[in-house]
Design a protein around this nucleic acid. Sequence first.
DNA 1: TAGATTGTTAATCGATTAACAATC
DNA 2: TAGATTGTTAATCGATTAACAATC
Lengths: 206, 206
Amino acid sequence: MAERLTVGVAARLSRYLQVLTQARKMGKDRISSQEIAEYTNINATQIRRDLSNFGKFGKRGVGYRTDALLEEIRQILRTQGQHNVALAGAGRLGGAIAGSPIFDEHGITIAAIFDNDPDKIGTRIGDLTVDAIDRATEICRDRNIIVGVIAVPAETAQDAADALVAAGVKIIFNYSEALLDVPADVNVHTSNPAVDVLYALYFHLT
Amino acid sequence: MAERLTVGVAARLSRYLQVLTQARKMGKDRISSQEIAEYTNINATQIRRDLSNFGKFGKRGVGYRTDALLEEIRQILRTQGQHNVALAGAGRLGGAIAGSPIFDEHGITIAAIFDNDPDKIGTRIGDLTVDAIDRATEICRDRNIIVGVIAVPAETAQDAADALVAAGVKIIFNYSEALLDVPADVNVHTSNPAVDVLYALYFHLT
DNA sequence: TAGATTGTTAATCGATTAACAATC
DNA sequence: TAGATTGTTAATCGATTAACAATC
């Protein structure tokens, strides 16, 4: 199983990781495929099949050890190190992201915050100082950053993306509604809660 | 094609909706399957096939009319009306969500904001007054709300979910890292940017 | 032992893709 | 006409599910 995972398998393993991380925090020592299924909306058979591709991690009649399974999945996804990300946007959303405990518990550190508003540059958010976006190249190189999060209004999202791309960022999470044009070797993940609502409503209404 | 869409098709159509909405804002009259593919990372053939299931919306050699295609997809997804959602949490993230223009352009209105902090109750965010979460039942009924967004810390997320469920909410978007226990007829969509980062990194590193 | 849950098989269905004729 | 892009076919691959023996 040294081959590259398919997109689907990697996506599902990520979801298991999320559930296991929380289950461990809640003090759950063991968890069954059925329980993971309830939290992920992924079929329990599919979960067992996904896991058994990589080894026999469970105990029949008992389930999976939360801790052990968490480590196995981290190894499969190769996400055990520490990862630095840059945040573009020191407004309300940027502040919320910077202050969220959600990254830390997965080994991800917000290692830089950029903005283009002179009133914000130099101010502190948590442990970080807000930097001018034109310092992105220097800072991303120094701090080994290849992941960027865009939390600015749609009007300036492309500028932020351009600056991050110029700084060597290869993966961008876009929380604005703008469509971003980037080189082919850069991956953009756009999040749009409104469209997610419409999608969820479709299944509720039909 | 009066049957219920599969989960995959509905998800992809939602993505097309997102791209078309932005393309229209940018003044693009026409768009090709190739262009949609670039913004969604969905194969262009898949896009044409998805669309041709419902009619011949395009013109060979030309592409699709942005406006017309947008309307067709809205009809297929039955998302033409106005939808009200409730927001639990009037903190930084709640403020960012309430102030975002992203919902409005898809016909979604934040019609209520709840919090349990006495200092926040009664304050205004945009056009809305923050209400105590124990008024959720009354308010959700009055404002015809079945979608809730949870933007509170993990510690209080389950309480917020309980209150929303008691108020008749059937679809919950959970922006906390907590796992939520809800009745079987309630759908929870949990968003976890940290796990999304790990997932994206996997494909970058392999 | 009895109950529970994994690991695995087998069968089906939908997603994905390349290729290309049709046609604007 | 020439170039571009759709709509569709055909072939492959992965996802999904039910069912159940294995075994804790």
